[in-house]
Design a protein around this nucleic acid. Structure first.
Length: 828
RNA sequence: GCCGAAGUGGCGGAACUGGCAGACGCGCGCGACUCAAACUCGCGUUCCUUUGAGGAUUGUGGGUUCGAUUCCCACCUUCGGCACCA
């Protein structure tokens, strides 16, 4: 065995053999503990990115590690194949999205195979296959039947470039741009389909028994944005123009304790009651303000620094706690999309209301008095938002308001209870989370299986009428409008209620709907009696480890949890959560430290790297070069270190054991110690997804192995143990070269079905150790002493050191701190 | 403004529970091999003073401790998320 390491030869060879032998096929085995390892599925853009490698190969290595630990590991893969880029290609190059998508999938399959990952390709699922989206439609109908899918007219985010609506989660950044194409979104009033994600807001905040990264938990928690407070109903006052008033205006407040200080109300300009309460003499002003607010983009409108503006409607409301008659204004600092789109304004205790009141000369009544300070009075210079005692608040005067938020604050709780007793309000909770808008005005997506009939309204396609199949014969106009709308007859159908002529919904579903359940389709991608085979579900679910990018924290990772919980409530899925453990990798940046992009010209192409170095080396480098959860810039110099490592492994095994002159027991002993120390370390690091130190440990051990070999004296037994364990430890990282070397050692195929080695604690034990000697906390010497020596002996040994004496000599010994087996600190 | 993370040699990073700072690797320097170069191998590589030896050092400044990259306080910088959220 003297030939050179040639990955171009051995990698395809083993990939083909593994495939042929079905080495990575995972089937139900009741005798083994299952382990469902899932990595986020790629979109078939046409080219595998180094980012895919970064996400997938460490996930694969970990799945392999779990398999060697005796788990029955399922590691599936598929494609999130619906979506806008396919239509972009259709519009730009005249290629049908289906053709474009499936051609891309074909080429990406080959690219994915070059990673040498342990995917069970039999379980591949493609979300644009009819056999897949059949069930995406079916799930929609389940949501509809249970009242979680509904149609609503509202102001929605519209991407003018993608020509479609977007969910709130898909609008990013200060300029509120489209998550996909970065174009700033505009507002549009439309009828659209929504899912009631808000029904699950509270449950989605519960992360107990979940091993998810703190970051994702925090992002989701912020996104859901729960606030405790109270809802209170104010009523309008009859005005001279004949309106008899009494219309309820519900508001939400986190500070019901300040209700007595509410001196005016503010409605969002879009609030449905605005026109009704506006008096004739204010009509012109109000109309002008509404128009101006509508023209403003969300960015302008939500700028914090902007001076508050508003106009008086002429209407008044009665404050239900004290019957005060207060004016109703409209202002664009109140948002229709949060709470009820109406607020009570308490200028004394809210900064925004304060600024507004000062500007328009509205009344300010303080109702919270800071304890131990002078009466804050009406001359206050700024709103007081701290704790204190209630004043000007009838029988609540003197009640203490602590700094606690929500019902945890006894004062707030007391007021809330009283509101409920009086029938004017109640303790309530508000969320920033909004219902999930799933309608997309696009062709290449799962059809929304709904039918509209003039007589009967909206009805779902009967389940035996599923799937609603996308027509192939579609054309795109240069405007980019959805071709489903323009199709001559696809939308024509009959009403499932009355049998009369009716029309299909021509919008399709957000692709996040497809990806909310792909982990279920992997269970049985060809199953046709339901979305998945229940037997497979019962064995494999839930997902044991889910890996993927952090960018999905508030989109996919919220949607899929919502989906699972809703389906659980319908009796379709089981358990609290779909994925019990989640880890997120960082991002590989270009060599310039910037995000990789074609326009910057800093893209690293994995195919070229495979050709130049082989997959094993890339895998090793991606695991080594940065902390996996952080990522960092690619370094084409740095990969040379991994190249050398793999070559050094190859050479070590190729050269074999030199002829033994005389056995060196001490050397064998220390080599075995290193081996098992490293095994312990690598095991720990695999458990904790610390991939970079796995590689450095393996490098360290290899260096030691070379040194021991060159020193001579390693006998056959120890040599066999070291080489065997080394290959096993490296196998998850570099599966091809280890398989090849394993075979060349004459070991039974395959290394990937071997067990993970166990640490020999005896081997790690030492009878001497290096005692760290400090004087006044500073390192002065290191001395070798016997294990288990006591403090007195250690101290004696330390004081015997010349280096120590230099610092101790002539000084009074004040204290000695001895940490057994580690260190002694002499304080003088 | 709010929530959070990070800051360690020229670079990526390591240090698991408060106990040897800089593992491992890149790069660089010197040497061996070579006619030569590449590869490979060996040695060195935080900074400062330096003969020996010592001093300083984990963003900055304090604190706790025998001892702090690690814990606490304040500040600076960078990054991520949210943001007129009532």
């Amino acid at each position: 065995m003297t030939d050179q390491y040639n990955p171009a030869e051995i990698e395809p060879k083993w990939q083909a053999k593994w495939d042929q032998d079905g080495l990575y096929q995972a089937d139900i085995d009741p005798d083994k503990t299952k382990y469902y390892a899932l990595t986020m599925l790629p979109y078939p853009s046409g080219d595998l990115h180094i980012g895919h490698w970064y996400a997938m190969t460490p996930s694969d290595a970990r799945a392999r590690y779990m398999r060697m630990n005796g788990y029955n590991v399922m590691f599936p893969i598929g494609f999130d194949a619906f979506g806008l880029p396919a239509e972009g290609a259709a519009i730009k190059h005249g290629i049908h999205p289906k053709k474009w998508t499936y051609a891309n999938i074909d080429s990406m399959r080959a690219q994915l195979r070059s990673m040498g990952a342990m995917w069970d390709w039999r379980r591949e699922a493609v979300s644009s296959d009819v056999k897949y989206y059949y069930w995406t439609e079916w799930f929609f109908i389940q949501l509809y039947k249970h009242g979680l899918a509904y149609r609503k007219h509202s102001t929605v985010n519209w991407c003018p470039s993608c020509n479609t609506t977007l969910a709130n989660e898909q609008v990013w950044g200060d300029d509120r741009h489209c998550e996909r194409c970065k174009t700033p979104v505009i507002q549009k009033d439309m009828q659209q389909w929504f899912f009631r994600t808000t029904n699950y807001a509270d449950e989605l905040l519960d992360f107990s028994d979940m091993d998810w990264s703190d970051q994702v938990r925090r992002l989701q928690t912020n996104w859901i944005g729960r606030s405790e407070g109270a809802s209170v109903v104010f009523r309008t006052v009859p005005e001279a123009d004949g309106d008899n008033g009494g219309d309820p205006i519900e508001i939400f407040t986190t500070r019901p304790d300040t209700l007595w200080g509410a001196t005016f109300m503010v409605l969002a300009p879009e609030h449905p009651l605005v026109d009704k309460i506006t008096t004739a003499e204010n009509h012109e002003n109000v109309a002008a303000y509404k128009e101006q607010a509508a023209r403003q983009s969300d960015i302008q409108r939500s700028s914090v620094d902007k001076e508050k503006t508003g106009v008086f409607t002429g209407g008044y409301a009665i404050n239900p706690v004290n019957q005060a008659r207060i004016p109703i204004w409209i202002a664009d600092y109140v948002m229709m999309g949060y709470g009820t789109g109406a607020i009570m304004a308490v200028p004394a205790h809210d900064e925004r209301d304060f600024a507004f009141a000062r500007k328009y000369d509205l009344e300010i009544i303080p109702v919270i008095q800071p304890e131990g300070e002078a009466f804050i009075g009406a001359t206050m210079k700024e709103a007081y938002v701290g704790p204190g005692l209630m004043i000007n608040s009838a029988h609540f005067n003197g009640v203490e308001i602590s700094e606690e938020k929500g019902q945890a604050n006894p004062g707030i709780a007391a007021v809330s209870d009283w509101l409920e007793e009086k029938g004017v309000g109640k303790a309530d909770v508000s969320y920033k989370l909004r219902d999930w808008l799933i309608s997309r005005q696009r062709y290449w997506g799962a059809p929304i299986p709904m039918i509209y009939c003039e007589q009967c309204g909206w009805n779902p396609v009967p389940e035996d009428g599923l799937p609603v199949v996308l027509p192939d014969d579609v054309e795109w106009l240069p405007t980019g409008e959805s071709p489903l709308k323009l199709h001559p007859n696809w939308k024509n159908t009959t009403c499932p209620e009355c049998g009369g002529p009716a029309e299909r919904e021509t919008d399709t579903m957000d692709t996040f709907m497809c990806s909310s359940w792909y982990h279920l389709r992997y269970l049985s991608p060809d199953y046709d009696k339901g979305p998945f085979d229940p037997e497979e579900y019962d064995y494999w679910m839930p997902v044991d480890i889910y890996t993927g990018g952090i960018e999905h924290a508030t989109m996919h990772l919220i949607y899929t949890r919502f989906f699972h919980k809703a389906m659980r409530d319908f009796g379709i899925t089981k358990g609290k959560e779909p994925m019990t453990q989640l880890r997120n990798q960082g991002m590989v940046l270009g060599e310039d430290g910037e995000k990789m992009s074609k326009s910057r010209g800093n893209v690293i192409a994995p195919d070229e790297l495979v050709e130049a170095y082989g997959a094993d080396t890339i895998r090793a480098y991606l695991m080594f070069f940065a902390r996996w959860d952080r990522g960092g810039p690619w370094d084409s110099q740095g990969i040379e270190g991994s190249v050398r490592w793999v070559h050094r492994i190859w050479r070590f095994f190729a050269d074999g054991r030199p002829e033994l002159q005389s056995q060196n027991k001490d050397l064998e002993h220390s080599l075995r110690r290193k081996l098992h120390q490293i095994l312990k370390q690598v095991t720990h690091d695999f458990e904790n997804f610390e991939f970079n130190t796995i590689i450095s440990s393996l490098m360290e051990l290899l260096n030691e192995m070379y040194a021991a070999r060159d020193a001579g004296g390693v006998g056959a037994d120890v040599w066999a143990e070291v080489t065997d364990l080394y290959l096993r430890m490296a196998a998850p990282v570099i599966p091809h070269v280890t398989e090849e070397l394993w075979e060349r050692l004459g070991k039974p195929y395959s290394i990937h079905v071997q067990s993970w080695p166990t640490v020999d604690e005896e081997a790690i034990k030492v009878d001497e150790f290096t005692l760290i000697v400090q004087v006044n906390g500073k390192l002065r010497d290191r001395i070798s002493v016997a294990v288990g020596i006591g403090e007195d002996e250690a101290c004696e040994a330390a004081l015997a050191s010349e280096a120590v004496q230099r610092f101790v000599d002539g000084k009074e010994l004040r204290r000695v701190i001895y940490i057994e087996g580690r260190l002694i600190n002499i304080v003088v």
